[in-house]
Structure formats: C-alpha cells, structure tokens
C-alpha cells in the first residue's frame, strides 16, 4: 500500500503526519521522503543509514573525431543544452533533460552518454521500519528523476508512506502518481485553504482517493471545514494548535513519543485511510 502525504503549501505539518503515522504503525512500514529539495523526515527519525546511492542522469558527450557538425542534435534539443558553434559542439549539462534526442538523431554515431550526478539516495532503518530519502545536490534542478528513483524502492508487501514535496507541479505529481491514497495536510488559515484547493485539483486529476488532516486546528477559521464539506472530502484527523506540540516539533521530536495518547489517533487515521482506499496490495494484516 502506498500513502502519499501531500500539501499544496510547505510547513503545514506534512512531515509530522507522515513520520508519526509511520511510528504509530511501528513495523511493516517504509518511510519514503520524496521532498528531495528540503528533506526533513530523517531529522525526526534519526535512521541508521545502511546504503548510499548516487542518482545519475545521462548527458551527452560528443566525439569530435566522428562529428560532422550537421547540427541535427542542436535542432532536436528543446532545452538549449547542446549547441554547434563553428567546428565545435558544446553541451550544457545543467540544462539537459536527458531525453536522449541528440543520441537518437545523430547520423554519425558521434554522441554517447555519460553520467551526471543529480543527487543521492540514502536507505536505512529505524527500529523495525525502513527508511529511504533523496537529496538534490545544491545547484541542480532535476527533481523528478530523484523522486522516481526513490519510488522504485516501493515495498509492495508493506505500507509505504511518502512525504511529498510542496506545491502542485511536476515534483508533487511524481510523488503522488500511483499512490493508493493521498493524505492532504493543511492548516485552517486562508493560505492553507487556498493551497489545499490547488492540491485537491491535482489529486482529482490523478484520480486517487484522498482525505484531509487539519493541523494546528483552532488557530484560524472554519473555512477549511466548510470547503471540505462542500467538496465531500472527509476530514480524517485534526491535530490541535498547541504550543506543546509546536515545541516538541521544534526540537525534532516525535509527537507519538512525547504525547503517547496520539498513537491511537494515528492508528485510527490509518484505519480510516484503509477503508477509503479500498482493497490494495500489501495492507498490514493481509
């Protein structure tokens, strides 16, 4: 089973929900932090890292001996990542989307590919749970390939909890695509509501069952609830706005550890997710 925890806006408590849900389940669970620009889950979980893998993308390399400077590679490239200037082919790796067009089109077989590192993936464990996250290298821009790589490690015999990046553009889609359920975390403020409506549009586009968690409930107004009711989306859990929770979070600690009464609440949340998601592969207890 794959549960993707998302929110249109950053800082709503996505990571808090993802990590505490995982901790409440305790085993048969894999946490996949796909917020590769700003991964945070490891700060709360402190996993023992057992494996580090580079994420690489192919970029072209031109053999000047074979090249006839026909410019076909430059013509096919939609990203301005390869240019033929006088008797020289220049490549701009940071612009390359690794589409392979130049390689496929070159009539002289002058293009080969080399590997460029976009970021890294780290795998590890915390108690009986598995952990995996990715990290974009500073100055790199290709986020979706790292997320797709993380997702190849999906364990279909356990629950996979994805901490998705914020927003509604391509990186988030890469982190929600193919999930059995999307949990949308929001806060009851005008910004929270606005970004929630965008996230709901994205989830609907993908056709994935979904529900809402309201974090910092009580800090703003009731508009989120009204919206959810109108849209017919279930509010699966509310985490109250409290200084105590904010402090626990600020120290990088887990709510379910410091405030054990929350464990049952997260387990109830999981039950409701299972019901809404319907029959899926690898549900705990099957």
């Amino acid at each position: 089973m794959i549960i993707s925890v998302a929110s249109g806006k950053g800082g709503t408590g996505k990571t808090t929900v993802a990590t505490n849900l995982a901790f409440s389940l305790g085993k048969n669970v894999q946490i996949m932090d796909c917020d590769v620009e700003e991964p945070n889950a490891h700060l709360f979980l402190d996993p023992a890292v057992t494996e580090t893998l580079p994420v690489v993308a192919p970029v072209p390399e031109v053999d000047p001996g074979k090249c006839t400077f026909c410019k076909k590679c430059m013509e096919i490239c939609r990203y301005g990542a390869i240019a033929v200037v006088a008797k020289k082919v220049l490549t701009f790796e940071e612009l390359c989307h690794s589409c392979g067009g130049c390689l496929a089109v070159c009539p002289e077989d002058a293009v080969s590919e080399k590997r460029r590192e976009l970021g890294i993936i780290e795998k590890g464990t915390i108690r009986e749970m598995s952990f995996i996250h990715g990290r974009l290298n500073i100055g790199q821009v290709m986020v979706p390939p790292i997320i797709k790589k993380i997702r190849t490690f999906t364990n279909h015999w356990s629950v996979n909890i994805i901490d998705a990046p914020p927003g509604t553009s391509c990186p988030v889609i890469a982190a929600m695509h193919g999930a059995d359920f999307v949990l949308l975390v929001t806060e009851p403020t005008p910004f929270g509501l606005h970004d929630l409506t965008l996230a709901v549009e994205a989830v609907k586009l993908l056709g994935i069952p979904h529900g809402i968690v309201i974090n910092r409930a009580g800090m703003g107004n009731d508009e989120v609830k009204r919206y959810a009711q109108n849209e017919g989306i279930d509010i699966l859990m509310e985490i109250p706005f409290s200084k105590e929770i904010a402090r626990v979070y600020s120290r990088g600690e887990m709510i379910v550890e410091k405030m054990p009464e929350y464990k049952q609440k997260f387990l109830d949340l999981f039950d409701r997710i299972q019901t809404l998601a319907g029959p899926v592969k690898g549900v705990v207890g099957q």
Binding site: G11, E38, F44, Y249, R251, G252
Partner: peptide
C-alpha cells in the same frame, strides 16, 4: 527561518544555494 530542527536544516540548504550563486 523558523527555530526548529527542520527549519534550521532548510535554512542551511537555501543559504548554501545563495552562496553557490
């Protein structure tokens, strides 16, 4: 920046990006 463990981590990464450029 927010004074949390994760806020500090996020801030450091943006700061490095700004320095990079």
């Amino acid at each position: 920046a927010e004074p949390t463990v994760s806020g500090r981590h996020d801030m450091e990464r943006v700061a490095r990006l700004a320095a990079h450029f």
